[in-house]
Computed example of a mutant assay.
Amino acid sequence: MWGGEELDLDAYLARIGHSGELAPDLATLRSVHRANVETIPFENLDVALGRRIPLDVKSLQAKLVGRRRGGYCYEQNSLLAAALERIGFEVAGRGARNRSRGHADVVTPITHAVLVVTVDGEPWLADAGFGWQGPLEPVPLADGVRVEQDGWVFGVGVEAEGVHVLRALRPEGWTDLYAFAPHTLFPVDFELMNHYSSGHPRSRFLGQVVAHLPGATVRRALVRDGLTSVNVDGSRQERLVDAGQLVATLSEVFGIEPDEEEAAGLLRVHSGEV
């Protein structure tokens, strides 16, 4: 289903720094998920540059593994799905509505791709593509679940029609991150959402540079010209990133090394010329 047979699993594991035994069990799911999230940054640079975003395994491996770049949810979770499938997991896709922007009365479109992985008959949410706000490890899909991951706390609720909601606990209380129905999606569905997010005029990924990296102690997010760092205690630091600092910030903070052509294009986006 996810092209796991086409993946160079050893190269992927080396990219995320994962070593040790592999089996379709919870320990492996947790360790692979965390290694992916903490190593491969969330970023939209190719979208910002107006490039096509292919989701086939060979293209994803060439970009995220070979070129040591990052990607957004369709890329991240398609690659993770291929790796998990290759290891032997049962993996299904889901489509989520983003609620993280705080507009509870607004129905947002289904634009976020997540995974549900079944281990010993139990479903687990796996998501390496929600950027700085996402979980470090899989989250069990059961109503009322609360899990702590290095001080970051996540919860799951179930609403009408079996809709699951992923929530995060912050100093001001619980906040919804996203919600998804128990309807299986396939790679072709990820392709459709990817088409919207990479090219529709209303997509939030166009016209600005975005890079995120969740970490165990601090999470960092660059959106347009603002770099925000959020600590596990809820404190945060913010600073502006001007054109002269953009490429260095991408490299030093997120481990992204754009080539000269990409850097020139990103500076044009950053300055509002595109």
Rank of each mutant, 00 (worst) to 15 (best):
G131A: 11
P171K: 11
G20F: 02
L267D: 04
D189A: 03
R51C: 10
D8N: 15
L45Q: 07
E261K: 15
G234W: 11
P140R: 05
G95D: 00
A243D: 09
S271N: 11
D233W: 03
G121P: 01
S197Q: 06
T28C: 08
R86I: 01
R239Q: 15
V139I: 12
I40N: 04
T228V: 11
A263S: 14
R86W: 07
L185I: 03
P54L: 15
R30W: 06
H195Q: 10
V269G: 08
G226Y: 02
F180G: 00
Q76G: 02
R146H: 13
H270P: 06
I40W: 02
W124H: 15
A221W: 04
D10S: 12
E262F: 13
E159T: 06
A82D: 15
A11K: 10
V47C: 14
E75K: 03
D10P: 00
A11C: 09
G121A: 02
R220P: 13
Q245E: 15
T217I: 14
D143Y: 05
T108Y: 02
V209E: 11
R67S: 09
P138C: 13
L60Y: 10
A126V: 15
A160M: 07
S203V: 02
G50I: 02
R99P: 00
G265W: 07
L79P: 00
Y74G: 00
R239W: 05
D189M: 01
M193P: 01
M1Y: 01
F130E: 08
I40S: 01
D56Y: 04
